[in-house]
């Protein structure tokens, strides 16, 4: 609905005002992210424009200072473990839940995805008390299990989404042609749900890689992750290395967003769903 010649002046005014408001809101949304990426290349440790010169020194510090490197390794180790665990658990559960007439499906689904609804600070406190009793406090295992709880619902949701509209006659046809269940799974089901699984795995990785509250509550300095190090860094004094770390995380989210979108399109193409 473009402003055309037969609209009244007030209407035209509103049209441009609306565009102006939208531009301002979109700027508000994107500006913080765009502003800090150039600042991470600043040659002096200040956070203002114009920048006197460009330098990679903060990235060098981020990738080579032991404090940050340990945090990065910890984050990657925890996130990879979480991804493997939650993708397995979540995919199995989604396969089960998607079988036709599964009893109490809605109730069970609500329970399984409840970890993303409960405020994370409550989860963190509850797990802190629980882990204190069972001796999982300040261990890698505890952190991995806690992050897996938060990440698995995403896998359940994405894989269930790929399975809606899943043509069950395909598996029946394969079984009718004599394939044992395991072959049916690996040759027919898995390739079809793979895009959903990979999206879910990426979500799981991202959840663990970004998570800070659980890392603060149930892990110690020995298991410090990247977000935890950033958090304590900001509380003291914000250093340019934190901005470099933030920029790396932003690039990571852009890469993830692109991959998930491409996978979603591929999945829809595979299942023959056309965008309307």
């Amino acid at each position: 609905m473009a402003a055309s010649t037969y609209t009244s002046p007030i209407e035209t005014g509103w049209y441009y005002l609306h565009r102006l408001i939208c531009a301002a809101v979109l700027l508000f949304l994107i500006a913080p992210i765009l502003v800090i990426i150039p600042l991470s290349f600043n040659s002096v440790p200040f956070f203002t424009y114009p920048m006197p010169g460009l330098s990679l020194r903060w990235y060098q510090e981020f990738f080579f200072a032991s404090q940050w490197r340990v945090a990065l390794y910890n984050s990657i180790f925890v996130a990879v473990s979480v991804t493997l665990l939650s993708t397995t658990l979540g995919t199995l559960a989604a396969l089960g839940l998607s079988r036709p007439n599964f009893p109490w499906r809605a109730a069970l689904m609500s329970l399984l995805i409840s970890p993303i609804m409960v405020p994370v600070v409550i989860t963190a406190v509850a797990m802190y008390f629980f882990y204190a009793d069972v001796g999982l406090l300040n261990t890698y295992l505890g952190l991995i299990l806690a992050h897996t709880t938060m990440a698995t619902p995403f896998v359940v949701i994405t894989v269930t989404a790929t399975l809606t509209g899943f043509d069950h006659s395909l598996t029946r046809a394969a079984a009718g042609l004599g394939a044992p269940p395991v072959t049916v799974f690996f040759k027919v089901t898995l390739p079809l749900i793979l895009p959903g699984m990979i999206s879910g795995a990426l979500f799981a990785f991202g959840t663990s890689f970004d998570e800070v509250v659980l890392a603060l509550f149930i892990a110690s300095v020995d298991q410090r992750t990247l977000p935890r190090t950033m958090f304590s860094g900001i509380r003291e004094e914000i250093r340019p290395t934190i901005i470099a770390a933030a920029s790396v995380l932003i690039l990571f989210s852009i890469a993830m967003l692109t991959t998930v979108e491409l996978l979603r399109r591929r999945s829809e193409r595979l299942r023959g769903i056309r965008n309307t």
Binding site: L89, G90, L92, A93, L95, G96, L97, R99, N101, F102, P103, L108, L111, L112, S114, P115, V118, I122, T123, V125, A126, M127, F129, F130, L145, A146, T148, T149, T152, V156
Partner: peptide, 28 residues
């Protein structure tokens, strides 16, 4: 049997959420 098989697939995650999440929250 089919329902049972479907339930067995859900069981690992169900137990994990019940023990690792619902139980701590309930205790809190």
């Amino acid at each position: 049997r089919r329902k049972l098989r479907a339930f067995i697939l859900v069981l690992p995650l169900l137990l994990f959420i019940l023990i690792g999440f619902a139980l701590p929250i309930g205790r809190m």
